[in-house]
Design a protein around this nucleic acid. Structure first.
Lengths: 348, 348
DNA sequence: GGCACCCGCACAATCGATGTTGCAATATAA
DNA sequence: TTATATTGCAACATCGATTGTGCGGGTGCC
């Protein structure tokens, strides 16, 4: 009854009087195809259960060249977008009888590559890569090893990818920021404080570049122009973001009219900065964040957010994997989460 | 040069004129002990690199009965405490040359058990279990399979465990909440609104019960009593927490003097509730949360938090694993993060 | 009665590594 | 010169599963 030791199909074979191959067939469900008597199969299955048998997946994997493991590589765990992605990925994987292996690589391209290689050494069945720093290199390695792979969030031209419609999302978010701008004040004209700034992200990466494009488009549609200094793609590092927002504030001599935080990491730093400014300075300040964080809805300031549909991204990624050999790019529209006017919004 | 196909040590053996066993020894570093000429070893290593060889870890695992995989089971990904834990776990695992496999089981005991069994089928080398719903059952299965395991956050009497000093942390947090209570108002006496309430968690679980004990101790130390209705251990479900806070508010006819949120999930719901209350109702309301969330520092309300030292928890867990056969219980003191008075705290 | 055929299963090869054993060839000792 | 050690490596068994092949016995058919 109790699985005291590890049993193998050979133990079961001995105790059941059958051969190992019969046991194998009985247990993995191929017994019908192998013309094993139903009674024999059932007897073996019952015995295996009684002995607490569980298959050795390394042995199976060695034989079949599959492992049941599916990898997901992402930049970090403690970021709501990626942890939501992990959650969805886990659900999808387990629903398909696969075992999810999720590894964070700190936006470090070398770490990414070495992790890919590590995972391949385990004969993972598929690899999902979210927010990669170097998609092409990863894809090259995977293709060389014939490993099915999909990119999420950051696409790759050489492999199937699923991304959010960053441009549209960014445009809508920018429009929302514009809509909640404080009434135009002539005093600020020309100081730069009348403008909206986009902060964070890496312009060399696809996702950021599309978001920047969306931001620009909205700016041009509404104001007829978008200055280069309005886009501050300073990466994802909290320290850098903090420094940039400070510098911006210093340069302008005050808060700008609005801000587009291009990642949760940056958003958090913006809030940290804001939490040290006196209240009056924040009146009429219009804030948006690309990516969703539930706490964003619970802040003193109204915050507009763009929520990526993580479940959908993961689902579509899995679908892409199932159609072989495509380099399709699937785009999923994001969800715009507008700050609703709140009782507490302003006290004045 | 390019790893076009998967190579094995046999390919390398053929191409190098050596035998597979020599190749194996050369590549895994045991060649000195096996009296292989240095020149031979180096030649093989160079060839392997050139061919882009990488070991098949399933084959190695089958032979050695180890896999290089270490499991971490936790309730959910999208919770800052657990995602911090994932992050630390990943770092520690990779520093030791192991591959982390992190799986969320939704606080579902059956899901936990089946995940444990799945992981064991992969011959994982060790299992870490954080916030388990049913530690004893898990431990029993692991012991039967002789799998080294450690519990984090929720301890198990039968296995090594690392936990935060929940009682002290809760006491300190409660004291902080008491310290920031609004001045005593005789009008509220006897309404229940003069009291502090603990919301969330599961009193049957060790962590919660210690936190409740700490809460009680602080209450008794300061007020000479703690009523049973002050502890509302309603679990971790957002919906339930939301319902309970509403019910409390209705029962009291207003906000209580303070609240101790016993988990981030509950904290989030409390904030959601608060964000719909008019500002004046929140004056002097004193809020604390067991577990840390960076956004907690950025809210309109001052929030005290207790931060578990995730890195330390993980490190100690790994240490425990290395001393064999202990059922030691290691306690790590948490970090108290007091809300600092802020410019924006009140406007009045 | 002889042949073909199907049923139910066992045998054995195989996946890719590890590690023990043993065998030549050379070096050292007697 | 023969006996003994040592060096350097190849052969082979093994881990636990999967899967192609084949064999003995029973049935059906002519």
């Amino acid at each position: 009854m109790k699985p005291t030791q590890k049993h193998t199909i050979y133990d079961i074979a001995t105790r059941s009087g059958a051969s190992a191959s019969t046991v194998s067939a009985a247990l993995n469900g191929t017994w019908k195809a192998r013309r094993i008597k139903e009674a024999t199969a059932l007897r073996i299955i019952a015995l295996a259960r009684e002995m607490g048998y569980s298959v050795n997946l390394q042995a199976r994997g060695l034989r079949t060249a599959r492992s049941g493991l599916v990898g997901l590589i992402l930049p970090e765990h403690n970021n709501r977008f990626f942890s939501d992605l992990s959650q969805s990925f886990t659900l999808e994987a387990r629903a398909r009888g696969q075992c999810p292996v999720i590894i964070a690589t700190a936006r470090n391209p070398e770490e990414e590559l070495s992790t890919v290689r590590d995972l391949m050494a385990y004969s993972i069945d598929a690899l999902f890569v979210a927010g990669a720093a170097d998609p092409q290199h990863i894809s090259k390695i995977c293709r060389a090893a014939q490993l099915p792979h999909v990119f999420i969030d950051q696409p790759c031209p050489d492999a199937p990818s699923v991304i959010t419609d960053n441009e549209t999302g960014a445009r809508q978010l920018t429009e929302a920021i514009i809509d909640t701008l404080a009434p135009h004040s002539p005093a600020l004209e020309g100081t730069g404080r009348e403008k909206i700034y986009l902060l964070g992200g890496d312009a060399r990466l696809h996702a950021s570049s599309r978001r920047i494009a969306g931001f620009r488009a909205a700016m041009i549609a509404h104001f007829g122009r978008c200055d280069d200094d309005q886009v501050i793609a300073c990466g994802y590092e909290p320290q850098t973001a903090q420094a940039e927002i400070r510098a911006l504030h210093a340069r302008l001599g005050g808060m700008p009219a609005g801000l587009f935080a291009n990642s949760l990491n940056v958003f958090e730093e913006v809030l940290r900065f804001l939490s040290r400014r006196p209240e009056p300075e924040l009146r009429g300040f219009s804030l948006g964040c690309f990516d969703y964080e539930p706490y964003g809805e619970l802040l003193r300031l109204p915050v507009h957010m763009v929520r990526q549909r993580h479940r959908e991204l993961v689902r579509r990624a899995w679908e892409l994997l199932e159609e072989p050999g495509s380099t399709e790019l699937v785009t999923v529209p994001p969800e715009l989460c507008l700050a609703r006017p709140r009782v507490l919004r302003y006290e004045g």
